[in-house]
Simulated assay, not measured.
Amino acid sequence: MIGAALGGAARRAGLSAETGESTQRIVWTAMGGWRGIIESVLPSLAFVVLFTIRPEPLLLSLGVSVGVAALFTIIRLAQKSPPSAALGGLVAAAAAAALALWTGRGADNFVPGLITNALYGTVMVVAALVGWSIIGLAVGFLMGEGLAWRADRRKRRAFFWLGLAWGALFLLRLSVQLPLYLTDQVTLLGTLKLVMGLPLFAPMVAVTWLVVRALYRRAEEEPE
């Protein structure tokens, strides 16, 4: 079930079911700490900087971007630390680079991100509107209550709005970045991708966790 999978993914990412966890720690864990931030940002940053300085040959900026992602993966494997985040970044960077090399357009390096934003945004919004918020499914299984949240009007309403908020975030990214892609403004597109990445993700995680903590702390106190 998707909820169980999402809840399991959250646990593997280090998120806790304890509502007493600090918001700062939850956000920091979700981003992967300094290492996760660097692994997430540096490949794209390397591409944007090199492409801006020297658009041709395209292979140079793409090769450095993929090389940085590959280096992070190798370091994780050598240190025997979980390579999933870095490996995911490497696969994404390699796929995007392959597409850009095939078409010869630097802007196509951002196509996978545009597709991801479109899919995630649409799924989040539709799921919330039909009463099966993705956020609710993930939190329900993370907190060990499965689908019981759907019988609680307060939780159902909160997860509805959180689902819409997350969907709006992905669709906002798409609405800003797609016109830049269509007009081949590679440098600005890459810059805004970085600006609309972790700087928007972190506050959304914080707000989500604050709402979740308030919901479940109140639920714990009500029987008393």
Rank of each mutant, 00 (worst) to 15 (best):
I2A: 05
G7W: 04
A9V: 09
R11F: 11
R12V: 13
G14L: 07
L15Y: 05
T29I: 13
W34L: 11
S40V: 09
S40T: 14
P43W: 06
L45V: 12
F47Y: 11
L50N: 02
L58V: 03
L59A: 12
L59T: 15
V64N: 00
V66G: 00
V66W: 00
A70K: 10
Q79L: 12
S81N: 08
A86M: 05
V91T: 07
A92P: 09
A93I: 09
A98Q: 01
T103G: 05
T103K: 04
G104Q: 01
A107Y: 05
G113E: 11
L119M: 14
T122M: 01
M124V: 02
V125L: 07
A127T: 06
L129T: 06
V130D: 03
V130P: 03
W132Q: 11
I134W: 00
I135V: 14
G136P: 06
F141N: 14
M143I: 02
R150E: 09
A151Q: 15
K155V: 00
R156Q: 13
F159Q: 07
F160Q: 15
G163F: 01
L172G: 10
L172K: 10
L172E: 06
V176D: 05
L178S: 03
P179N: 06
T183K: 08
L200M: 13
P203R: 01
A206Q: 00
T208A: 00
W209N: 00
V211P: 01
L215H: 11
Y216I: 02
E220P: 04
P223M: 04
E224Q: 15
